[in-house]
Design a protein around this nucleic acid. Structure first.
Lengths: 257, 257
DNA sequence: CGTTTCTAAGTGGTCTGACCTTTGACGGGC
DNA sequence: GCCCGTCAAAGGTCAGACCACTTAGAAACG
């Protein structure tokens, strides 16, 4: 019964093969954040696969934020703060009907807890960095765009100070989505002084290792930030996409063996 | 000075073009979860791009969990619960040195808050579904694998009952990563009765609309679950990958215009 | 007639190899 | 010494052929 053309290897799919290979390179330390991988043609030859397949695998990793591709320069291992796919949130928003208040709610829950952890575990280096950003915020109160940058930086440092990179990555995912939206309306903001002062208070609570207070202040801060942003885009388009009804019982079973 | 062969369009990169096109199809309701997109050859011709480029774009969307491709069948819009790239967490774990306790900590923070929200907002349909899963857990106490499935389902329903799909997606991301790990050790578990009873208590707190109690019980449950899992894989490999030191000041500035 | 098996069409996966576009660096001209 | 043209390197796109997996319907069998 003439056997198939099944030479030998189980020959897992190429994409998977590439991802696994690079994963192992990262795990054993051969590749570190910021490193450059070999040119596609060369790397493909080394892995004994076509350049097209290699590209598929790299594309997959790039989509998840694990790698960064620069046209005409090379492909690198991501080195910024961990994050779960920038486009991800907005894409999934379109797909699952995410609402603005839900983003704020999620952010509030995450960041307030993160602030509490930062108050428990923050080290001197973090306090110094936070202090610096607060100072920069006060200095940039009349330059909304600059202010925003230091605002984001401040929150990023807190996330780092929490000592939990996973929570930091989750926060980063939501914050960066919000940041993109914010950048468009920030020029209209007012009361940056009050905002800066709240940041200073949060900073003090964290430096003084007061978790409960840090959490409370962060919640208050985000609550006000939300209202401010809603106000900033008062006169704006309201497409109001039709929100499809929620999942049925059946689809909950997805991915369970 | 002879201009380039620049016919007309700004000609954004192909991948982006594909992603944007599909995004718009989703946003205007032409594509809904579960729908199938046209065959690659046909779709590529319609978009006036090569099949290879189309595939790159689809690959990007698939990597982020927005689409699902099935060899020999077709490509579909994802329909399961929202999630941020399954492989994502484990890949990023390798890259940023995620630790097990950090996953549990993140899960505890997210799920306890989610449980509180579910207690506030849960509807009858959710209570019914939760009740059913609890019953199934009691019925599967001597079949760890089955038990695990209903366990995951139970938590998934709570996430859905929270009324915040973003938080649900974040929980799902972490839970599914933990689920993969757990599946390997679950056969060794004991005390499933106690676990089932805790689930029942959580269910009761949510049904009774007691947020604070639901949060407390969920925290307690996850704390025990963590200890149980640590115990399950007592005699196991401990590679202890070298955790690279944390980010420097510079890389914090990433992605800020 | 019902069941099993085979076959072919449809669709995603991979390969090859050529050509285009973007960067960055080197080096000559002013 | 500065500016700009040129070129090599590396990623991006294309075209077309062929491979591999699924499914459904046809054909053979009981």
């Amino acid at each position: 019964m003439m056997r198939r053309t099944k030479p030998d290897q189980p020959d897992t799919h190429r994409t998977q093969q590439v991802v696994d290979h690079i994963r192992s390179l990262i795990e054993n330390g051969t590749l570190q954040p910021g490193d450059k991988i070999p040119p596609e043609r060369e790397f493909a030859r080394a892995l004994k696969i076509s350049r097209a397949s290699l590209r598929t695998g790299i594309g997959y990793l790039a989509a998840m934020g694990v790698m960064k591709v620069k046209h005409g320069v090379g492909t690198f291992v991501a080195d910024g703060p961990a994050e779960f796919g920038k486009a991800s949130l907005s894409l999934m928003g379109a797909l699952h009907g995410f609402q603005s208040w839900q983003m704020f709610e999620a952010r509030m829950i995450l960041e307030s807890q993160v602030a509490a952890l930062a108050a428990e575990r923050g080290k001197e280096e973090h306090h110094a960095a936070m202090s610096e950003e607060v100072a920069e915020m006060f200095a940039a109160m009349d330059a909304p765009a600059d202010y925003l940058i230091h605002d984001v930086l401040f929150h990023r440092i807190i996330a780092q100070a929490s000592g939990n990179p996973i929570l930091a990555a989750l926060s980063e995912t939501i914050t960066s989505a919000l940041y993109d939206k914010r950048r468009k309306t920030v020029e209209r903001s007012t009361d940056l002084r009050e905002s800066a002062e709240m940041h200073r208070e949060i900073y003090r609570a964290i430096r003084a290792h007061k978790p409960a207070e840090a959490r409370r202040l962060m919640e208050e801060h985000l609550r006000m930030a939300k209202e401010a942003q809603v106000m900033e885009r008062s006169a704006e388009r309201r497409p109001a996409a039709p929100v499809r009804s929620r999942a049925g019982r059946a689809e909950l079973r997805a991915n369970l063996t």
